[in-house]
Simulated assay, not measured.
Amino acid sequence: MKLARFTVEGRTRLGKVVGDEIFDLSAIVPELDGSMRALIEHFDQLRDVLETVADGKYLLSEVTLEAPIHDPRKYLAIGMNYQAHADEAAAAGHAVPTSQLWFNKQVTCINGPYSDVDVPKSAPNMVDYEAELGVVIGKRCRHVPLEEASSVIAGYFVCNDVTARDWQFRSPTFTLGKSFDTHGPIGPWITTADEIADPHALTLTLELNGEERQRSSTGDMIYNIYEQIAYLTQVMTLEPGDLIATGTPAGVGIAGDRFMREGDVVRVAIDGLGAIENRFVEEN
């Protein structure tokens, strides 16, 4: 199932995407008050009724797709998790971690799948893109064994881990450079885990103004998704709706000294999950 948040007629609602149509779920789950986090938390109980929804239909072209989750408690991301990207970072003089490298993207960065992304006034020169596979946690969990990690995943989405490199490098942690408002476009919807046979066998691509800049299989991760979850839950409780960005492959802008400018359009696509596309604009 593909679960989305969408706005039509001035109201944002929960929806189910089927082909080029979206079905309004609001009448089915009014008690959730439009919360995707709540829907994910109760998805196992609601799945059967959601599958039968056939009313309240709109064309996708008639609605605005919003970030599928706009209010997660956590948005965590792993750095240098594709070998080719780690190699290009090392070639640029950056230390390559010997264990999983995690940082926060503050949740106020979250942005819609087709919304504009700011080139900030305070970071106008080194804004970069990073195509990534995103994971949504479906169950409250701690100390998850590696072999059980798949069971706590609700689904997957496409994301661009937009980064202000100058702010990233001036701080002992990556958080500031990763957390500017609008720098977390995600979507276009959440594809539930049962629809993805193997999340480590997906092709991920990024195009800048129509030119391909990144292409990789998600199987090229150094630490796979299940290893990431097992590692994180040694430290913290993950909760329904928490987001994880699983790393970017080679080809980021900094490797070629090509940063985002006013009018640039970045498209990130992943097999089976759809695509997001965002225009970069100067911050007002």
Rank of each mutant, 00 (worst) to 15 (best):
M1H: 12
L3K: 04
T7H: 00
L14M: 03
G15N: 01
K16F: 01
D20E: 14
I22H: 06
F23T: 00
A27L: 12
V29Q: 02
L32Q: 05
S35T: 08
M36R: 12
R37G: 10
A38L: 15
I40Q: 10
H42T: 13
E51F: 10
V53W: 01
D55F: 13
Y58M: 05
I69R: 05
H70A: 15
P72V: 06
Y75W: 14
M80H: 03
A84P: 01
A91W: 01
G93V: 13
T98N: 13
T98E: 14
T98W: 03
F103A: 12
K105R: 15
Q106T: 15
I110P: 03
N111L: 14
G112P: 02
S115T: 13
D118G: 00
V119R: 08
K121L: 14
V127F: 01
A131L: 09
V135L: 00
V136A: 12
I137N: 03
R140L: 06
V144I: 11
E147K: 09
V152S: 02
A154I: 00
C159L: 15
A164P: 07
D166N: 15
D166R: 09
P172Q: 05
P172Y: 03
L176G: 10
G184A: 09
G184K: 08
P188V: 04
T191C: 10
A201M: 05
L204H: 10
L204C: 09
L206W: 03
L206M: 13
G210A: 08
Q214N: 07
I222C: 06
N224M: 05
I229S: 08
T233S: 04
P240W: 12
D242R: 12
L243E: 07
L243T: 08
T246S: 13
G247C: 07
E262D: 15
D264C: 09
R267K: 15
A269I: 01
L273N: 11
F280W: 05
